[in-house]
Design a protein around this nucleic acid. Structure first.
Lengths: 196, 196
DNA sequence: ATTGTAAGTGAATGAACGTTCACTTATCTT
DNA sequence: AAGATAAGTGAACGTTCATTCACTTACAAT
């Protein structure tokens, strides 16, 4: 049996991400991808069932990697401030090393395709995160809040900063770059908001 | 000269939004839109230069309406807490009355198309918002912060909540609905974070 | 009532789309 | 060395795409 060419699969994924980030989901086609990845269109269908499957497989792989990175070193018994800082720094690191992957996910996140992916992520990582938050509340380091409220305060600001950084501008700034200082400043505001 | 049929244009816009929200940007085509809006494909090209123009015209109209609604009743001299609450409530009201419009914008926001739209919005509304924030800082009601930090704390949590509501679920909840109480709770956390 | 004009059309265009098929090629097992 | 098998291919399929064109229709101005 002929063996799979590993370079081929990663070339496909890399080019797909690149194309979708640069031209959007509607500017993306199987034939263009095949050409960009130096592969026959038919080869794509060895790796993926169809176009939808290609997009959602790539998206869920990235999502899982993002979550794994983001939770690296997190112990449920960590202090809340330390644990949240760790997650922020981990996410930021993932973004800095894989910016296209994050932009890709952001683009998928708001399409109907994303519905299937969230299940996988929640199933794999819901446990650890749940315990971390639960412990922090029990220790009195975190207000008891509906999970959605907690999440929207704890992580939405980080994603917004990353988005400004990604797009290179914000509502009042044409050439925005995130700085470590700014990240820490925002994190401290978030911690202040969530403290009992 | 024959007069334009106003119903026609709004039918086109309404169906376009509906289709893109339900099937995503790539499941959207001019011919399907024409059929859904009971119009000839050629008619679309009377109203819009091409497909891209159609999408970005609709998107920027919605963006402007959203900002107008969100700033309704805002005076730059308002207290910061009142002004921010007003903007949150206004935005939430816009979402409740035009949920599809907001989902449509969210979907465009992360595509390359959005770049052109942000200019229009900033140009039209940057002034009022800038003054409001400036006054609040001078009065000592708001920490002086980089605008991006301010924005990510002040509004990202609201958008995250709306997103949970829109999608009908959050990381730990399969059937999430936003409540007034939850909105107020989150707003208070945000105000707490931003207070000097 | 006639006419000028822009609104509106259905059918047609060629290009690009996702996908498949008959086929070749590389590698593992024997 | 031969055979088995999955990887990989280029050309082709029917479909759908965005867009255009020759044409009709409705209305305002005259």
């Amino acid at each position: 049996m002929r063996t799979r060419d590993v370079n081929k699969e990663s070339a496909i994924q890399e080019k797909a991400i690149e194309m979708i980030v640069k031209q959007g989901l509607d500017g993306f086609s199987m034939q263009k991808l095949a050409k960009a990845a130096n592969v026959s269109p038919a080869t794509l269908y060895i790796y993926y069932k169809d176009r939808d499957d290609l997009i959602s497989q790539i998206a869920s792989q990235i999502s899982v990697r993002l979550m794994e990175t983001s939770l690296k070193g997190l112990h449920p018994k960590m202090s809340f401030a330390d644990g949240l800082e760790l997650q922020w720094k981990n996410r930021m690191e993932f973004y800095l090393t894989h910016p296209l992957d994050v932009e890709f996910i952001e683009q998928i996140r708001y399409t109907p395709t994303y519905a299937s992916i969230k299940d996988i992520v929640r199933q794999k990582f819901g446990d650890v995160l749940g315990k971390f938050v639960h412990n922090a509340i029990n220790r009195g380091e975190l207000q008891p809040l509906p999970f959605e409220v907690y999440w929207s305060i704890a992580f939405a600001p980080l994603y917004q900063l990353i988005k400004f950084h990604t797009q290179g501008y914000s509502p009042t700034n044409d050439c925005f770059r995130i700085s470590d200082e700014m990240l820490n400043q925002t994190l401290n505001l978030v911690l202040k908001a969530l403290k009992p």
